[in-house]
């Protein structure tokens, strides 16, 4: 399960709704045994050289900077988010084949650039994505 505040989700959604291509970034926060509390999100550029409305690639240097940032701020890299344009918030086979264990993959689905749904997924031991609950906390 991941926990995230409603204000953070609202900001994130507002931001991704303004970008007419797949956008991506990292989710950082504090982790306990059963819970991952997202405290920040960190947008990064989509550097895919293919059709960017259907693909995203994160620059490895952005990845490294984010890991460095998480060490600096003593937070954990909880997950990676990306948008699906006019496609459900379900991981595609492309997503699955490129996925790593031990991190959450949060997908935000936009329909005509309007928020439609948000879901979070994690790989299991047989490399299948399992949905995990997103608990949105209202302050």
């Amino acid at each position: 399960m991941i926990r995230i505040s409603s204000s953070l989700v609202e900001n994130l959604i507002q931001e991704v709704e303004s970008i007419p291509e797949e956008t991506c970034g990292f989710l950082l926060g504090k982790t306990t045994e059963n819970e991952n509390n997202v405290l920040h999100y960190k947008p990064v550029a989509n550097v895919s050289t293919q059709n960017r409305s259907k693909h995203y690639v994160i620059d490895p240097k952005d990845y490294l900077r984010t890991e460095a940032f998480s060490i600096e701020t003593q937070t954990a890299l909880i997950g990676i988010y990306h948008t699906h344009l006019d496609w459900p918030a379900i991981p595609s086979e492309t997503d699955r084949l490129a996925a790593f264990p031990n991190v959450s993959y949060v997908i935000i689905s936009l329909r005509q650039l309007r928020f439609s749904e948000i879901k979070s997924w994690r790989l299991n031991d047989t490399n299948q994505f399992l949905e995990e609950k997103i608990h949105i906390i209202t302050q």
């Binding site: 991506c24 259907k54 690639v57 994160i58 490895p60 990676i80 595609s92 492309t94 997503d95 490129a98």
Partner: peptide
């Protein structure tokens, strides 16, 4: 030496 996962994905074409 850093090992960096290539993070990528998207909608199937």
């Amino acid at each position: 030496v850093s090992i960096v996962p290539a993070i990528a994905g998207g909608i199937d074409d």
